[in-house]
Design a protein around this nucleic acid. Structure first.
Lengths: 223, 223
DNA sequence: CGGCTCGGTGAACGCTGTGTGAACTGGGAC
DNA sequence: GTCCCAGTTCACACAGCGTTCACCGAGCCG
């Protein structure tokens, strides 16, 4: 469990001590403007953003959010005087801690945050007989392994992590293919078709078409 | 937005003042042992559990979690000395706040908690036994799922989001079909007919005809 | 009661959207 | 260079859906 510590060098000893007492290894990144320039292999468990300047800290959060770890838990250390500024930035962080933190509070918050993140983002997605292992990039349905291409896996992963929700082709293109993507919506159709084919006749229904709207993974929550 | 305030009577003035300054209305429940005995109608936006005795507070959380609102956001006010006790109860709460809270911290935490909860909660229109899930594009009446086409769903959604109000066919055509639409008014009739058929004999009356005017969802406001 | 209008009803038509197979493209392996 | 494979685009066919129409019954007014 290695949190990333975004902090103007050097991190205050009290903060470092609190982390290490709690059993966390950590990695400090001084440059708030480029927070993931030196990300550890495999990403980090969570990030702590600390800076007396709230604008700069929130800007760093924004960068983290928009890059490859949009769901990575983010804790902000804020000066009590800057509390009102957080109001308009709810989507930028997952938890905050007033500086200086009371003994034990930072550990408790980090622990709770990581617990929640692990719970909200399991390494294995399982739904309706389909199993996706997000670590090993393997997929199986009803115990039978699926040989999926990269895009097929990404599309299936996105759909399966939002069971029941309907996505338009445009939404899927921007969420799965990327915000900048500019391509025909039929691309989605073809990938869905191939996914259904690989899922097999019996499980093809896992992805259902909502006519004039888009596609949905899984069944209704009521039906 | 009404949080439930679980606190041994009476709640401390500072806590009450903090809540009201932040624009929350609140409801106090003294008996931690039976926290939802006097729950406000329709549930609450979130619960704050405050008690100097951590065991009692966590027991109250457990009751709330296991009852009808397992996903309701839960914030615990804890004494700093009791921080270590939280470690083994991560699943019992969503956020915590050290007592006494610094000015503004409780508001910020409550706001963030409710924001997070609101994001996770599906958008649902509910009226007269009819439930429309706007995310999954699914409809159900009296627990029975409805298989609606796109236009049927859009029409029903529009009507159900304006219960009691009468719309002319022209209004429905422009609001549901689009401002540019130029088609026969009988189109609306046919869709209403099909909707009534799918709603079933028992619930067909949810859409009532106002002769020489148009259609209305639900009962009149005067009747 | 008679005439008129409005809405319910079922069927038929035509078009849009989706499924589907195949061709095309670009990049990486050898 | 050639081959291969993933991803994209294309063309076509068909099912499902929205629209229109014709007919009929109900309600309203004289």
């Amino acid at each position: 469990m290695q949190p990333l510590l975004l902090h103007p060098d050097p991190p205050p000893p009290a903060l470092v001590q609190a982390l290490e007492l709690a059993g966390f290894t950590w990695k400090a990144v001084a440059d708030l403007g480029d927070p993931d320039a030196s990300a550890p292999e495999g990403g980090w468990a969570g990030a702590i953003v600390a800076n007396p300047d709230p604008g700069e800290a929130l800007a760093a959060c924004r960068v983290l959010r928009q890059r490859d770890l949009p769901l990575s838990p983010l804790l902000v250390l804020v000066d009590p005087a800057q509390l009102p500024a957080l109001d308009s930035a709810a989507e930028m962080f997952d938890d905050f801690c007033l500086a200086p933190a009371q003994p034990g509070e930072l550990q408790a918050r980090l622990g709770h945050l990581l617990w929640r993140a692990g719970r909200a983002r399991p390494e294995v997605v399982e739904h309706g007989g389909l199993v996706l292992n997000l670590e090993t990039y393997q997929a199986a349905v009803a115990g039978r392994a699926l040989d999926l291409t990269y895009m097929e896996y990404e599309l299936l992963k996105f759909l399966a992590t939002h069971p029941g929700k309907v996505f338009t082709r445009e939404a899927l293109l921007s969420q799965v293919w990327g915000y900048e993507y500019y391509g025909g919506a039929r691309t989605v159709d073809v990938h869905v078709r191939r996914l259904r084919a690989k899922l097999g006749e019996e499980h093809a229904g896992l992805i259902s078409t909502v006519r004039s709207v888009g596609y949905r993974f899984g069944q209704s929550r009521w039906a």
